[in-house]
Design a protein around this nucleic acid. Structure first.
Length: 455
RNA sequence: GUAGUCGUAGCUCAGUUGGUUAGAGCAUCAGAUUGUGAUUCUGAGGGUCGAGGGUUCGAGCCCCUUCGAUUACCCCA
């Protein structure tokens, strides 16, 4: 019976200190979302499995946490359950075994919500959503099985101004959090389509994007090798090499890409998109990166990815892009959208590593009343309630322990003031207030105590 | 899913080729100190050495299995 308790792999408990820091990130992001006129939405932790399956690619499907159906042992269902399990063993999923799953991201549940409610929503619909998601991935640095995403999406508008705003939201949030040298990479899927067209057809699109996405990780030669393995001809690889060799400032890159794929109709459109967002947004951290591809295949236009400052080796701390027909998957066509996501858990790790949390984040109890005995503590209790009704967080030590124990308690809990009310103070209607940081102590009349502590 | 590294007190870690009763610092608790502590002094408690099996006269150390943590690959925030 006494096995050590534990929590599932890749999940975490958050202590008070961590919760406060996380809340600091949440509220920063939430305030910016609200400032940009996004409305909150929350969706269930679990979705019907079929809502999620097939939306994240083959790899993604494997990483969805599936929930076992209840009542599998019921005598009427036992045969079905057996048959369903056989299907699972073959790598398929079976509604006889599982028909619900934990949500994998916030975008697909949002698309499902929009499809269900498109008659009631006012378009363009701007929503933000801050909730945990789950992935059955092997945990490692910056990767958890339960983590929180903060998404903002605009659906029902084709305007590129949305992309500009989202780029500005990224900037606003990261500047406020102190992550000044983050990098916002942008590209357009249309440019990648144009490249694929140039290299023998859009069916090669996935092969090409998967390979070039790895450029900064494995280098040009390895990318070329991979392209060869994926069945591209030498001629085609030379085109891609030229594409990958585009370097320089953002302006220079734009000139080079135009000469390479500007003749393609879709390529031209993609370049215009990137150029517009780059010029219209005042975000100085934008880096136009034509190798950026992003895994999710529902993106159709601008794509974003946020890189953490290089010194922390965290990789992506946010991402997003435009999808022309996400709700089409749920039977409601022609609602285009664009969205971004913040990965709070990684942002937390980055800020921790760079020491960016302000000290004021740890706002704890303001004052501790010492317990100086039976009558004294009963008196102090009344004073404490007065402080509380004035919005001052405080507590009374639970028993009349030795003074140094009470001091130690205050110190450990990071409580800045202790208030001592003994028999003498009760008579004189005042109290001794000691500032633990400075060690200074003052006699304060009980009437003025609220003002004294409010500073 | 594949692979590497690591599991010793509440925490951070020592622990010799395998050799008596497994150690230190910090933390906790108690004591010169029931109205002024966080710096000192004294003492105490605390361990199935992750778990299970094996080799050996003898295992914290070697071997196998298993669980957990962590890192990398794949993929991703």
């Amino acid at each position: 019976m006494s096995t050590k308790p534990s929590i599932p792999q890749g999940t975490r408990d958050f202590s008070a200190e961590v919760v406060r820091k996380r809340n600091y990130i949440f509220s920063t992001i939430r305030n910016v979302f609200e400032l940009y006129s996004f409305q909150p939405l929350e969706t269930p932790a679990m979705e019907n499995l079929e809502t999620l399956m097939g939306k994240y690619g083959e790899e993604g499907d494997k990483l969805i946490f599936k929930i076992l159906n209840n009542g599998l042992d019921h005598e009427n269902k036992i045969e079905k359950a057996r048959a369903g399990f056989e299907k699972v063993l073959e790598g398929k999923s079976s509604s006889d075994i599982t028909e619900r799953a934990l949500k994998y991201d916030l975008t697909i549940p949002f698309a499902r919500y929009v499809a269900m409610n498109h008659g009631k929503l006012t378009f363009p619909f701007r929503r933000y959503q801050i909730q945990p998601v789950w992935r059955a991935d092997r945990p490692q640095k910056g990767r958890y099985r339960e983590f929180t995403q903060c998404d903002a999406d605009v659906v029902g508008s084709l305007s590129l101004l949305n992309e500009v705003e989202l780029a500005n939201i990224y900037h606003e949030v990261f500047v406020q959090l102190g992550i000044k040298n983050y990098e916002l990479k942008i590209n357009s899927r249309k440019i990648l389509v144009a490249l694929a067209e140039l290299c023998g057809g859009t069916d090669k699109m996935t092969d090409i994007t998967v390979a070039i996405d790895k450029l900064d990780k494995i280098g040009l030669e390895k990318v070329k090798e991979e392209l060869q393995q994926r069945g591209l001809s030498n001629e085609q690889i030379i085109i891609i090499e030229n594409y990958l060799n585009i370097t320089g400032s953002n302006e220079e890159k734009l000139i080079q890409i135009k000469s390479l794929i500007g003749s393609s109709e879709i390529g031209k459109k993609g370049i215009e998109e990137v150029e517009f967002v780059f010029q219209q947004s005042k975000n100085t951290n934008i880096d136009i990166d034509f190798t950026l591809a992003r895994g999710l295949n529902y993106y159709t236009g601008i794509i974003f990815e946020v890189k953490a400052p290089a010194e922390v080796k965290m990789g992506s701390i946010g991402g997003g892009g435009r999808y022309d027909d996400l709700t089409g998957l749920f039977g409601v066509p022609d609602i285009p959208g664009v969205g971004i996501s913040f990965g709070v858990d990684r942002i937390y790790d980055v800020m921790e590593e760079l020491n960016l949390f302000p000290s004021g984040v740890q706002v704890s109890t303001k004052a501790l009343f010492f317990n100086m005995g039976e009558a004294e503590s009963r008196f102090a209790f009344g004073i404490m309630q007065q402080l509380r009704s004035n919005g001052i967080s405080c507590e009374l030590y639970h028993e009349a322990s030795k003074i140094n124990k009470q001091f130690t308690y205050a110190e450990k809990k990071n409580i800045p003031f202790v208030i001592i009310i003994g028999s003498k103070e009760m008579e004189e209607k005042n109290c001794a207030v000691k500032n633990l940081a400075t060690g200074q102590q003052e006699i304060v009349s009980l009437e003025k105590l609220v003002d004294y502590l409010k500073n």
